[in-house]
Computed example of a mutant assay.
Amino acid sequence: MTDLIRSASLTHYAEIARSVGIDPKAMLKQARLPLHCLENPDLRIAVAGVRRLLEDSAKASGAEEFGLRLAERGGFSTLGPVALVVREQATVGAAIEALARYIHIQDEAMRLEIDRRDDLVTIAMFLRGGHQRATRQSTELALGRVHRIIAMLFPEQWRPLEVHFAHAPPRRRTYHRKFFGCEVTFNSEFDAIVCHATDMNRAISTAQPMLASYVESRIREIGPRPEAWDDKVRELVRALLPGGNCTIETIAEHLGCDRRTIHRRLRECSTTFSAILDAERSDIAMRLVEDGNRPLKEIAELLGFSAQSALARWFRGRFGCSITGWRGGNRQRTVAAAARW
């Protein structure tokens, strides 16, 4: 199982890395993460790679609180579409429940559970892989961002009653106390934030529940994250094709493995990387070519071809006619040819 996370999780990573004296590009290479993941927040990268990056960064810089430094700079922007439904809920409690429902869209390996007992609410966080694989830094980044999201829902300063981490304490706890605004318990049985039940009833003055309902209906359409390897590769191909960097090596970087693993996993799914790439190119090509005003040079770039001539050769081999022929009214014939190909 390769869990993926939106590269938005690394928003502000480069500046935090530089502020503690390390080279962000060198650290990304060491963690075997693609350098371009810092430029596009919607790309999917391996959770294991992000965990490795955070732990290596903390070790190289000596900043035990590296994950919290990154969490401190984050906010709703790191959640992508999930932020839209969270911040438009009527109450803080409803917002956190929405976050728990849709956090898998941001991070496939993360789960939140909300436990209400008497006048206390516990927001417990679970990272797939358990404490053996979820590192200190990734745990503190994830729970730190949950804390920051809650705090941003209040017009005034907010602080929880307690914060718990299952891992051992750092040498110095000053940064942790300042970040959370309360005592932090380490070597606990769980990773969680504990707060007053009344905090969850607080109304969000800027909320628009009607908008939240609409956005939530659209987010539901995203559905569960793909689990099968061919679906994960297909999703990455769609995202990477327009950038002209859709190679099997790049896909392997995003999935945190090597090209041999990709070939083997796709064989188990009865397909190949070339077949997936060609199918996705064909689907996108048909939509782009329908637009008679779109230049062929632009189409070639969006489909990942280095030259317009390469696009022309591929199109004729795939659809049995030229792009001009397709635009000239041979669509039905060429679609039938593509189906037989």
Rank of each mutant, 00 (worst) to 15 (best):
T174F: 09
Y175V: 05
H176F: 08
R177D: 12
R177L: 11
K178D: 12
K178G: 12
F180S: 01
F180K: 04
G181F: 06
G181R: 01
C182I: 09
V184C: 06
V184M: 03
F186H: 03
F186S: 00
F186W: 03
N187R: 05
E189L: 11
D191G: 00
D191T: 10
D191W: 12
I193V: 12
A197V: 11
A197S: 14
T198R: 15
D199F: 13
D199C: 14
N201I: 08
R202S: 06
I204A: 06
I204R: 05
T206D: 15
A207I: 13
A207N: 09
A207V: 09
M210I: 10
M210D: 12
L211G: 06
S213N: 15
V215K: 09
V215H: 15
E216M: 11
R218G: 12
I222K: 09
G223C: 13
G223E: 11
G223W: 13
G223D: 13
P224M: 08
P226M: 12
P226F: 11
E227G: 04
W229P: 00
D231C: 04
D231G: 02
D231K: 01
D231Q: 01
K232N: 02
R234T: 02
R234P: 00
E235G: 04
E235L: 03
E235K: 02
L236G: 01
A239R: 08
A239M: 10
L241G: 06
L241K: 11
P242A: 15
N245I: 12
N245A: 13
T247S: 13
I248P: 00
T250E: 06
I251V: 03
A252G: 00
E253N: 02
C257Q: 02
R259S: 05
R260H: 14
R260M: 07
I262Y: 00
H263T: 04
R264E: 01
R264G: 01
R265Q: 01
R265E: 02
E268I: 02
S270H: 04
S270T: 12
T271R: 03
F273S: 02
F273C: 01
S274M: 07
S274G: 11
A275T: 11
I276Q: 02
A279T: 08
A279Q: 10
E280W: 09
R281T: 06
R281W: 01
D283T: 07
I284A: 15
A285V: 12
A285Y: 09
A285G: 08
R287M: 15
G292I: 04
G292M: 02
G292A: 04
N293M: 14
R294H: 12
R294E: 14
P295E: 15
K297E: 14
E298D: 15
E301K: 14
